[in-house]
C-alpha cells in the first residue's frame, strides 16, 4: 500500500480513537443520562416474552427520565448466561444496563452460570409472572384440591407440560409434586409456552404449571381454565382464580425479568433510574400495554427487587438440591 494511504489510515484511526475517547471519558455522574446512549443488554432472542416486556419497559421508562436514550441489544447466546455475565462485567458508569431473568436464581445451582444476583444493583422488575395451574375446560376437576385427588387416583399418568427439564416450569411442577405428594408424568416442550398451549388445546396433555400470559387467548375462548395461581395476590386479569396461598399452600413461584445495573454503579445514577421506574405505574398506558398481552405488570423497584432475587435464589437452591435430575 502506498505511503499516502498508510498516512491516511493512521490519521483516520487516530480520529476514531479520539472520538471514542471523548465520548466515553467525559461522562459525569451529575450529567447522567445525557452523555450518551444507555445500552440495555437483553439476554434473550428478539420477539420472545422477555424481549417484548423489556422493550415495552424501556419505551415507557424513556418518558419518565429526562434525556435518556435506551438502546436495547439482544445477546441470547449461551442460553442467556453470556448476556447476563456481560452486564455484570460492564462499566459501572450507568451507560450499560441489562435484563436478568429468573434463570439467574436457578442456573448457579445447576452449574450453568458463574454469577448470581449479588453481582447486580437492581432497578426494577416489570414482570414477575406466577406459575398457574392450567387445565382443559372440560376436565373433571375444578379446583386445585380436586386436581390433586384426581392425580392420586391416576398416579404417574397425569401428563404435565413444562418448558424444558430443569427449567422454571418443570421446577414449579416438581415443587407441586412435593407439596401435594403426587406424581406426574413430565412432558417437556422446549420451544416454549405456545407449544404447551397448543398441546393443551389439542388434549395431548392434561395440565401445565406455567405463566398464564401465553394461554390468555385459549382461556378467554373457553377452551382452558385456570385452577390456581402461585402468586402473593390475586391476578387482576383473573380475579376469580384463587392463589395457592389463600388455599392454604404457601407456594410462590414466579418468572421475573428485572432491569439491573452492574454492582458498583454510583447511587445517584441508580436513584435517577429507580425514581423514574417508580413512576411507571402512574401511567395507565404502561399498565395497559402489559395487560393487553395477558401479562400482569408489577412494579418491584430497587431494594424490593433485590430482595425478591435473593429470596428466589435461596428457594431454588433448596428446591434444586432435593430434585434429582438424573
Amino acid at each position: 500500500m502506498s505511503k499516502k494511504y498508510i498516512a491516511l489510515l493512521i490519521a483516520v484511526s487516530v480520529l476514531i480513537l479520539a472520538v471514542y475517547g471523548y465520548v466515553s471519558a467525559g461522562s459525569k455522574v451529575e450529567n447522567y443520562p445525557n452523555d450518551g446512549d444507555v445500552t440495555v443488554i437483553i439476554p434473550k432472542s428478539p420477539g420472545g416474552g422477555t424481549d417484548i416486556a423489556a422493550r415495552g419497559l424501556l419505551q415507557f421508562l424513556r418518558e419518565e427520565i429526562d434525556g435518556v436514550n435506551f438502546v436495547a441489544t439482544n445477546k441470547p447466546e449461551g442460553g442467556g448466561v453470556t448476556g447476563m455475565v456481560t452486564t455484570a462485567n460492564a462499566n459501572t458508569d450507568g451507560y450499560t444496563l441489562g435484563m436478568v431473568t429468573v434463570e439467574l436464581g436457578m442456573y448457579p445451582h445447576q452449574d450453568k452460570c458463574p454469577i448470581t444476583y449479588e453481582e447486580f444493583a437492581t432497578i426494577c422488575a416489570p414482570i414477575a409472572s406466577p406459575a398457574a395451574l392450567i387445565v382443559a375446560a372440560d376436565a373433571p376437576y375444578n379446583t386445585v384440591d380436586e386436581f390433586v385427588a384426581y392425580c392420586n387416583e391416576h398416579s404417574g399418568e397425569v401428563q404435565v407440560g413444562n418448558s424444558g427439564t430443569g427449567a422454571i416450569w418443570h421446577v414449579a411442577a416438581v415443587a407441586f409434586e412435593k407439596e401435594f405428594g403426587v406424581s406426574f408424568r413430565h412432558v417437556p416442550y422446549p420451544s416454549g409456552t405456545s407449544d404447551i398451549a397448543a398441546a393443551l388445546a389439542g388434549k395431548h396433555i392434561d395440565a401445565t404449571l406455567a405463566d398464564p400470559s401465553g394461554f390468555k387467548s385459549q382461556v378467554s375462548a373457553g377452551n382452558l381454565k385456570i385452577l390456581g395461581v402461585m402468586s402473593d395476590t390475586k391476578m387482576q386479569l383473573y380475579p376469580d382464580v384463587p392463589t395457592f396461598k389463600e388455599l392454604g399452600y404457601d407456594m410462590i413461584i414466579r418468572a421475573w425479568a428485572a432491569l439491573v445495573a452492574p454492582k458498583d454503579t454510583p447511587e445517584e445514577i441508580l436513584h435517577k433510574l429507580r425514581e423514574g421506574a417508580a413512576r411507571l405505574f402512574e401511567n395507565q398506558e404502561y399498565i395497559d400495554y402489559f395487560l393487553n398481552q395477558g401479562i400482569e405488570p408489577v412494579n418491584i423497584v430497587g431494594e424490593d427487587c433485590y430482595q425478591m432475587m435473593k429470596e428466589d435464589h435461596e428457594m431454588y437452591g433448596e428446591l434444586l438440591s432435593t430434585m434429582d435430575l438424573e
Binding site: 499516502k4 494511504y5 489510515l9
Partner: peptide, 25 residues
C-alpha cells in the same frame, strides 16, 4: 471492527488484483 476493516479490506482488494489505490480507498 472499523479499524480492522480499514486494514483488511484494502488487503483483500489488493489480493484480488485491484491496482488503483484510488479505487481501494
Amino acid at each position: 471492527f472499523y479499524i480492522a476493516m480499514m486494514i483488511f479490506m484494502p488487503l483483500a482488494m489488493k489480493l484480488m488484483g485491484t491496482e488503483s489505490d484510488k479505487t481501494i480507498t
